[in-house]
């Protein structure tokens, strides 16, 4: 009986030792947390070469002020400075007291958008709202469709209704200004309704290993005309620098279509898919680990330039005019 219990006890003790078999956890101190983040991005961040970033040098510079005694705030400041240099809106570090970010891509550019003016002077009280879309016929049978976030989901039947409603329009303004992105599936679903000519639109690849040139899993995205109600007449896409991520991808897809003209400012960019991770101290962060190209080979990380560059004239604000909508109406008429 004693042997049986001794054996049992031994088995339980041995079996609970697996943590000693597992790969060791990194230490949780300011230097090891800094090194963890630096190494993770060194191996998996997708845009060092395209942005010409010397990650080794940056790592050394921002690590220098840190020590084992550094406070959480000092660690955050060092990591924030390091990540800021990536110039990437898909890179963030989230600590309980702050969120690191680089939003220069739109803060350093004209706003080019004022919803108040659009609602009060163009849409007025009788516009329609469905699935995140706001839409209306403007004068001269010009359709206007505003979509403010690709995180706002919509159904296929909602799109059917909208595009049926606009089937007699002379032209259409698709306004995605200030749309900061969201779901790529929503971007693809909406873009398909504007496809007139089947064509390749995007190529993506991703990090597949730790070396700088370890990219693979390349995919070509081609789009064909939708069998559902769609719009293939002349279309103007309105953009500003706050068009980011999925909206940037949406603009890239529409670039493949000759009947669509982009008007306004270059989109904000954000062509990489952000992935998440955490530090030994529990702070989470995200970074881009895929790349997206136009069929011409041009990377879309820094934005899609418009065919017709145009900024809002601030004098127009006083007059209650949206210069981009006015320019689009001129193009369509």
């Amino acid at each position: 009986m004693r042997q049986l219990f001794t054996s049992l006890l031994l088995l339980f003790i041995l079996a609970s030792c697996e943590k000693s078999l597992m790969q060791e956890e990194p230490g949780n101190n300011p230097l090891s947390n800094y090194d963890e983040l630096w190494e993770r991005l060194d191996e998996r961040y997708a845009y060092f070469q395209i942005k010409n970033i010397n990650w080794d040098s940056l790592g050394t510079v921002y690590r220098a002020p840190l020590s084992l005694e550094s406070s959480d705030e000092e660690l955050f400041e060092a990591l924030d400075s390091l990540l800021f240099a990536l110039r990437d809106g898909h890179v963030n570090l989230s600590a309980p007291f702050n969120l690191s970010r680089n939003w220069e891509w739109y803060l350093n550019s004209p706003e080019n958008f004022n919803w108040e003016i659009i609602e009060r002077n163009y849409l007025k009280r009788d516009y329609k709202i469905a699935g995140g879309f706001r839409y209306k016929y403007l004068p001269d049978s010009i359709a206007y469709l505003y979509y403010g976030s690709f995180s706002s989901n919509f159904s296929s039947s909602q799109l059917d209704y909208i595009f049926n409603y606009f089937k007699d329009a002379k032209g259409l303004i698709i306004d995605v200004r200030d749309n900061g992105g969201g779901s790529l599936n929503n971007a693809f679903s909406l873009a398909k309704r504007f496809i007139k000519t089947p064509s390749p639109a995007l190529i993506t690849d991703e990090k597949t290993g730790p070396q700088p040139n370890d990219f693979g899993n390349s995919l070509l995205y081609s789009f064909s005309p939708s069998s559902n109600p769609n719009f293939t007449k002349k279309t103007i896409l309105l953009s500003n620098r706050s068009c980011y991520s999925a909206t940037n991808t949406f603009a890239a897809i529409l670039k493949s279509q000759d009947h669509i003209i982009q008007l306004g400012d270059t989109t904000g960019g954000g062509g990489g898919l952000p992935v998440d991770y955490e530090l030994p101290n529990g702070w989470t962060y995200r970074f881009s680990s895929t790349r997206t190209f136009l069929p011409s080979g041009e990377d879309i990380e820094m934005g899609i330039p418009p065919e017709i560059p145009l900024n809002l004239d601030t004098n127009d604000y006083v007059l209650g005019r949206d210069g981009l909508i006015e320019a689009a109406l001129l193009q369509l008429n």
């Binding site: 998996r44 991703e206 990090k207 597949t208 290993g209 899993n217 992935v275 680990s289 895929t290």
Partner: peptide, 9 residues
Amino acid sequence: PGYIRQFFN
């Protein structure tokens, strides 16, 4: 999982 995420295509 793959190198950066669970699924590819």
